[in-house]
Design a binder for these strands. Structure first.
Lengths: 233, 233
DNA sequence: GTAAATTTGTGCTTTAAAACATTGTTATCT
DNA sequence: AGATAACAATGTTTTAAAGCACAAATTTAC
């Protein structure tokens, strides 16, 4: 692996997808009132039970949002990519966080204080509406996940996870390798299965020529087939 | 069972929990621009794939929001009680509904046309914020459900469902009978299990004196114990 | 009010996935 | 660079829950 270059973060206006609905005053205010934080791989950004203090935006890197369930078994709720917001749901409901967030690779995060965020939400209708859309979308995804994770069989759940990762992070230059290298354990926690079963099922997919593996690099070879597997349940 | 009386629906201002943030103009407009619909027990209100046309408010009765999963096995996402909104998430995301909604007992529903609803959302910041809060809350519940339904064992899932129903619908005069009489199949679909297993597990709970059953009437006798069962997983 | 159709209740069988155990392999840290 | 820890791969055993079959009891419909 090449030595990591610590790149300078982009300016906030290039990172915030909701920048267009802000007023000139709000823009200037946010330029001066946000902080930049770097997190190392596997570093915890916030955890369940914490009082939310900031709304956050992933500038670069990749993070996982997960919950600790029975016997501290983790369930990954969703994976974020640059430009996505997080940590603000708990601000809106006025409750402690109910998820943990951790970096799965070195990540840079912009933070905006909770009171500044709510103040804009309450004064800028278009801004508020954007987050309404975002939550409406996330809720649809979450509801769909309930059914996928509870009703599909192991193969279907893992196939689904691989397809979602590909859609979310895209592929590398070869056009097939999924642009995120997760540990088998993370794949298992995404797909609601044990690590052994994730490993076993990946091996089966590889034997069946549906995917190809090179360590953590996963290549989807037969996407049609993977889609069929994910639908069969 | 006593003969059902068809009660006159209450006026919209008594039903809409967000009435307080509306302007006098909006109030008058909504008084004139909403429709009232009655649904019989088990009647479908809207289904997966339908284009959303109205945001809806349950005036009276009880409805279930559910998804059809693998092999058309239903998963109840949530149960609604009077005063709750539904059908609007799809309006906000501009997509077809991704859930079915059906009355589990005779229900009266107020409907507001989609374009009217979005227009108020886009012009009344406080109104928009209220729905932002509602979705933020629902997303938290949905995420928690992912973990509960995937990681807990049958007994834990059913215990959880019973406690949630009690919290949501309350109890009758005796202080113990849950104020909703669901079919075993609905209880199963709520708790991600087969009907046989719901029946079996309810019988076990009854033998253990945790609950008492009289047909569809379920009485929670030992709530502490039920809470412990639901936490154990 | 009676017949048909659901719904409920049980026992038995099968099966998918977890749990466990062991070994090989790859990162990570001083 | 070598030690140590974390991760990956597989085989075996156990178990929770689904699937199935059938009888009894309720609803619902005509």
């Amino acid at each position: 692996m090449a030595k990591k270059t610590i790149s300078t973060p982009r300016p906030i206006e290039k990172v915030m997808t909701v920048w267009d609905v802000l007023t000139p005053d709000e823009r200037q205010f946010l330029r001066n009132n946000h902080t930049v934080h770097r997190f190392k791989k596997n570093e915890l950004i916030h955890c369940e039970g914490d009082i939310p203090t900031h709304m956050m935006i992933l500038e670069s890197g990749k993070v996982k949002v997960f919950k600790e369930g029975v016997g501290s078994r983790a369930q990954i709720i969703r994976m974020l990519k640059p430009g996505e917001h997080f940590g603000y749901r708990a601000i809106i409901t006025n409750q402690p966080h109910n998820t943990n967030v951790a970096a799965v690779e070195p990540s840079t995060i912009f933070m905006i204080k909770a009171d500044i965020f709510t103040s804009i939400l309450k004064h800028n209708n278009a801004f508020c509406y954007r987050f309404l859309e975002e939550l409406a979308c996330d809720l649809g995804v979450s509801d769909a996940r309930i059914v996928n994770l509870t009703q599909k069989h192991i193969r279907g759940r893992l196939a689904e996870a691989l397809l979602t990762l590909k859609k979310n992070y895209g592929v590398e230059a070869d056009g097939a390798t999924i642009s995120i290298y997760l540990a088998r354990e993370d794949l298992a926690n995404l797909s609601n299965m044990t690590t052994s079963n994730a490993i076993r099922t990946l091996s089966n997919f590889a034997n069946e020529q549906v995917i190809a593996m090179d360590g953590r690099k996963l290549k989807i070879i037969d996407e049609e087939r993977l889609i069929r597997i994910s639908k069969m349940g």
